[in-house]
Computed example of a mutant assay.
Amino acid sequence: MSAETASAAPVRSRRRSALGWVALAGGLLLAALVGGTLVYGGYTQRAILDPESAGSDGTRAVVRVLEQHGVSVTIARDRAAAERALAGGKTTLVLRDAPMLSDDALRDLTGRARHVVLVEPRSRALDVLLDGSSLGGFSPDLSASPECGVPAAANAGAAHVGELLRPADGVEGCYPVDGEFGLLQSEGVDGRTVTALDGLSVLTNSSLPVDGNAALALGVLGQTDTLVWYVPSLSDADQGTAAPTLGDLTPAWVTPAMLLLLTAALAAAIWRGRRFGPLVAERLPVTVRAAETTEGRARLYASSKDAAHALDELRRAARSRVGRLLGLTARTSPHDIADAVAQRLDADRARVRGILVDDIPRTDRELVAAADRLRDLEESVRAAVRTEGTTR
C-alpha cells in the first residue's frame, strides 16, 4: 500500500462519519418539522370543544358554518384577547368552563357581550349567570323535541340532548327530559341573553350533522354578526384566586420532618460507610510468588473438574522454567522446548512432547499422573543441567 493510499483512507473514513452525522441531523430536523406542522397546522385534535380542532370532539365545523353565513368568528385564547374582541358590545360570547376566573371576573367578562352561550356549563357558572340554575342528570334518549318558546330551539326542531340542566325561577328550559332540560336561556330586560347547552351533544364535529343540531347551533351562536369564542387559559386567573400550590397545601410540620429524615439518612450513611482501620494488615503491594498463582489457578481448574485446563496451566509454568534452564528464549514454541528437552535427556521425542504438550487428561487420576510425569521430567532436566555444569 502506497503512502498516498494510506493517508487517504483515514480521510475517507472521517468523511463517511461526518456524512452519517449530517444525515442523522437532517432526519431529526425533518421529523421535527413534520411534527410541528401536524401539531400547529390544525391537523390534530387540540382539545375538546376547541374551535380550531378537526377531531371528532372539536368544533371547527360549526365555526366554518357560521363564517359561511356571514358571522365573523374571533378565537380568543386568553382573557385579555377576549376583552379586546368584546369591546364593541354587540357580540356573542361563547364560553367554556373557566374555573380560574372568580365570580366577579366571570360577570365582568360576560357583561361585555350581547349574548352569552355556555357550551360546557358547570354548577358555578349556572349559579352565577343563570340565577341559581344547576346541573341535572344525563338523557338516556339522545333526541328530544324543544317544547319551548326560544326561537333558536323552536326553529331547529328535534336535537340531540346529553347533559341535562335544572332551571331556576325566570329561566326558560327547552328539550325537556323527565323534568330536566337540555337547553336553558335567561333573557334580561335589555334583550341580553344567557344560553346554556351541552356542546358535546350539539356542537362537535361528529354531532353537528345529526337531527337539528346544525340549525340549533346557528340559531344560538349566530344571533349577532360577530362571535368571540373564548378558550380560557390558566394565566387568566385573578390575583389571589389562583389555584393553591403544593407548598400552600402542605402542612407546616412536613418540611421540618423531611429535613430531619434527610439528616438521619445522611448520618446513617456516614456511620455505615466508616472504615475501622485498613482492609489489609500488611502493606501493599504484596509480592506473590509465581508458583503460588500457578498452583492457585490449577486448583481452580481442578475444582471445576476441567483437568485439561489445569494441566495446561502446570505445563505453561513448567515449560517456562525448563526453557530458562536450557537457555531458550521466551518466544520459543512449546514443541521446540519439548524437542530441546528430548535432545538434552536423550529421550523419546514423542513421549516428551506428550508430557509437555500433547497428552490430554480426562479424569482427576489422569491429571495427577500427568502432573507427576511433568514434575519428574523437570527434575530430570535440572539434574542433567547440574551434572553438565559440574563436569565442565
Rank of each mutant, 00 (worst) to 15 (best):
A6T: 09
S7G: 02
A8E: 09
R15F: 13
W21L: 14
A25D: 03
V39W: 06
R46A: 15
A47W: 07
G55Q: 09
G55K: 12
R64M: 04
V65W: 01
A76Y: 04
D78K: 04
R79C: 01
A80H: 13
G89I: 02
T92D: 00
M100F: 00
A105M: 03
L106I: 03
L106Y: 03
R107L: 15
D108H: 05
G111S: 02
V119D: 08
P121I: 15
S123T: 15
A125W: 05
D127V: 02
G132T: 09
G137W: 02
A152V: 04
A153E: 04
N155Y: 08
G157Y: 13
R166L: 10
C174D: 06
V177N: 12
G179M: 06
F181E: 04
S186E: 05
G188I: 00
G191E: 02
A196Y: 04
D198K: 07
A217Q: 09
Q223L: 07
L227R: 02
L234R: 15
S235F: 01
P244V: 12
D248H: 10
A257R: 15
L259D: 14
L259T: 09
L261Y: 08
L261W: 13
L261V: 14
I270K: 03
R272S: 09
R272M: 11
R274V: 11
G277Q: 07
L279H: 05
T287M: 06
A290C: 01
T294I: 14
A307E: 11
H309P: 01
R324H: 10
L325C: 03
T329V: 02
A330M: 06
T332Y: 07
I337D: 02
A338P: 02
Q343N: 12
A350F: 08
V357P: 00
V368S: 13
L374S: 07
D376W: 07
D376G: 02
T390Q: 06
